[in-house]
Write a protein that binds this DNA or RNA. Structure first.
Lengths: 218, 218
DNA sequence: CCAAAAATAGCCCGATGGGGCTATTTTTTT
DNA sequence: AAAAAAATAGCCCCATCGGGCTATTTTTGG
């Protein structure tokens, strides 16, 4: 039996993550927090085995929170969450004592596989697994690369459209701008929403902003 | 008589700005551009006395454009525009040769006051005025503070709603969350959109993100 | 050259959004 | 206590969005 604390500023994300965790009978989400401060407060009352910690949060970000939690409760396992698979963030997370790093927008099954291996300690998770998971989604790693392709990888056109959507343009604007039909824009958009597991264009804009913030190419 | 080139990626913003400028009989908007590149192209054909340059634009952003314009046409006065009153941006703007920095969402009258003083050179604008204007809108500067309040000033409720919108929630979600009717949410939203001069919730999200990014309280 | 992937485009239809109005109640300010 | 501002809520109406589905043409990769 493993207890989880989910820390993310988006209540939606927390719900989504909790939903995924509930698929594994031995996983129990015992709390949620919307920023690092709340997470610390929570842990002072009740300890969790594993903390899933988003990086970008108001008040206190995931890095700072990880540092402090690790100082106070060194035996808590912390897995950092991010929408990007940025290598810098990944190493930063490990440096501060996190045991892992999970890229959002992955298949629930992958989350569970990964978290099970972290929880049971079956695998030498010291860095190996986390690293492997990351690598699978950064450099072209054979079969895993296909999964990335299948998953996040937007096509060139999709990226163009994502960018315009994120700037607040309507589908018609975009169609006009790219001189294609509005239907085509809608089609691309549908695919983008599906690929990135978000529900609407505002969330898409947030997604794009998070990437842009890190200087990530999108 | 002073000629203006308005550079902003949002055609709405350009229109709004042009409208404000038209209130002063001696101000003439002789051109608009939607990004830095277009602005440069325009200036090669026809020079303007003053360029109003948005910072965030696709293709070529305001900082880059300012640098290049100042190199090619050192006698053109450039005023940077931004939705935020971030001090970093402000100094960056001055460093690159801009003569001023205007915060969007200010009262038209303030714009005109400021631009008149820039145009006529009556005041030692070398940094003084720009700085003063900025200060009025950062630290609590007596009367000016009230004007800020009056202007972009969303109410408490509106800020709550803005935040939820920016996180990608639908109106219904928000209504549910705040236990008010969806109609009320829509009403608040209408007011917010109007106050912040944006067209839709994605642009609202961008607005919120820009503020959040700079650690500005919103 | 052929197969797979990407880009194009259309249709239908219900959900959501956003503008324009009016109006009542609560809260704040004067 | 009176006035002003904010919060609440409703209405109508059309625009936009987003999901599901099919289908053709380009482009790309092996």
């Amino acid at each position: 039996m493993y207890t989880f604390l989910v820390v993310d500023d988006s209540s939606e994300a927390r719900e989504a993550i909790s939903d995924i965790l509930s698929l594994e009978p031995s996983f129990y989400v015992i709390g949620q927090a919307s920023n690092g401060k709340e997470a610390l407060k929570f842990l002072q009352n009740r300890k969790a085995d594993i903390v899933l910690m988003d990086i970008n949060m108001p008040e206190m970000n995931g890095f700072e929170a990880t540092k402090q939690i690790k100082t106070l409760f060194p035996d808590i396992t912390i897995i950092m969450l991010s929408v990007s698979d940025d290598v810098q963030d990944f190493f930063e997370a490990l440096k501060l004592g996190a045991q892992g790093y999970l890229v959002k927008n992955l298949e629930p099954q992958l989350w569970l596989d990964y978290l099970r291996s972290v929880a049971t300690g079956d695998t030498p998770l010291e860095k190996g697994i986390a690293m492997r998971i990351l690598q699978e989604f950064t450099e072209g790693g054979g079969k895993a690369q296909q999964q990335k392709e299948q998953f996040h990888s937007l096509t060139k056109r999709e990226r163009e459209i994502l960018q315009l959507v994120a700037e607040g343009y309507t589908n018609r604007d975009i169609a006009c701008n790219l001189t294609i039909s509005e239907n085509t824009v809608k089609n691309h958009l549908k695919n983008i929403l599906q690929k990135l597991h978000v529900k609407n264009r505002v969330q898409l804009a947030r997604y794009a902003a998070e990437f842009k913030n890190k200087g990530y190419p999108l």
